[in-house]
């Protein structure tokens, strides 16, 4: 579904991705992990056509990205950006409707089918009650869900998420990822770049670790989410334990400034 070969890409002469090759099969849900500045965002920008490759190729669904028109590309791949620009005076509904732009003709407006898709997407992320609010009235988490709803309304076979859950509370995070897992089960290929490695380990069957624009580790979560690999990639001591409920690997940073056994200062009960 996604095929990068020797991809080099970056900004104004500064290459961030350095000869990266990656294959993602249809229906996979892959977590893209790695330290700050590793190239996670750049990879997603290259895959969504925002950055053109300096060298190498990107193909989506068997078609070279360079040969696709902007709208054709947007019908294949949707992206949820990190919080980013908030155009305050627009209504939530209008922004979600933008997900239908790749399906418009040159002069056409948004039709009933587009409005239905937008309604369904807003309901799916629990935004229905906010549909007529202006963006500047929303919290950061609500705005992020607007962007997620817009990507859902785009109804593309590939979904790219760039820190799409960073400003969500833990309940909303789980809600969004359960929704993504359901979409994935329905056949949508998902690539999610995130810093929350435990969230990735709970939902992604495959993890790709980037460091300095190269793939450092790539494999099934159980095989690459290990103390050794994580400690090497993040250059800090990390302990991996099994999730008591599901057995999924979860990471804890070693250390901290509080000595063990010291009583807590706050009250824990009434």
């Amino acid at each position: 579904m996604i095929r990068c070969r020797d991809l080099t890409s970056g900004y104004r002469g500064r290459a961030v991705l350095d000869g990266l090759s990656l294959d993602v099969a249809a229906g996979e849900m892959v977590g893209i992990l790695g330290p700050n500045g590793a190239g996670k965002t750049t990879l997603l920008m290259a895959l969504s056509g925002v950055l053109s490759p300096g060298a190498g190729t990107v193909a989506l669904a068997g078609r070279d990205l360079a040969e696709l028109s902007d709208r054709q590309r947007a019908r294949l791949v949707a992206a949820v950006p990190p919080r980013g620009e908030n155009a305050g005076e627009l209504a939530v509904r209008s922004v979600v409707l933008m997900g239908r732009y790749p399906y418009l003709g040159f002069l056409g407006g948004y039709g009933p089918q587009d409005h239905r898709a937008a309604e369904a997407a807003m309901e799916a992320v629990g935004l229905g009650y906010l549909a007529d609010r202006r963006l500047h009235e929303l919290s950061g988490g609500e705005f992020q869900r607007v962007l997620a709803a817009r990507a859902l309304a785009q109804e593309s076979g590939i979904l790219l998420l760039d820190e799409a859950s960073a400003s969500l509370d833990i309940a909303r995070k789980m809600e969004l990822y359960r929704l993504l897992a359901a979409r994935n089960a329905a056949g949508v290929t998902i690539l999610a770049a995130l810093h929350d490695i435990n969230l990735a380990a709970l939902f992604c069957r495959r993890l790709v670790f980037l460091v300095n624009g190269r793939i450092e580790a790539d494999g099934p979560t159980a095989e690459v989410f290990t103390q050794q690999t994580l400690s090497r990639i993040y250059e800090t001591d990390i302990i991996v334990i099994a999730h008591p409920q599901t057995g999924a690997p979860q990471a804890l940073a070693a250390g901290g400034s509080l000595p063990a056994g010291r009583p807590a200062g706050g009250r824990t009960g009434p």
Partner: peptide
């Protein structure tokens, strides 16, 4: 209004 990156990702 949402910026170049989002515009391109929406097919503009």
């Amino acid at each position: 209004l949402l910026g170049e990156r989002q515009a391109r990702q929406l097919g503009v």
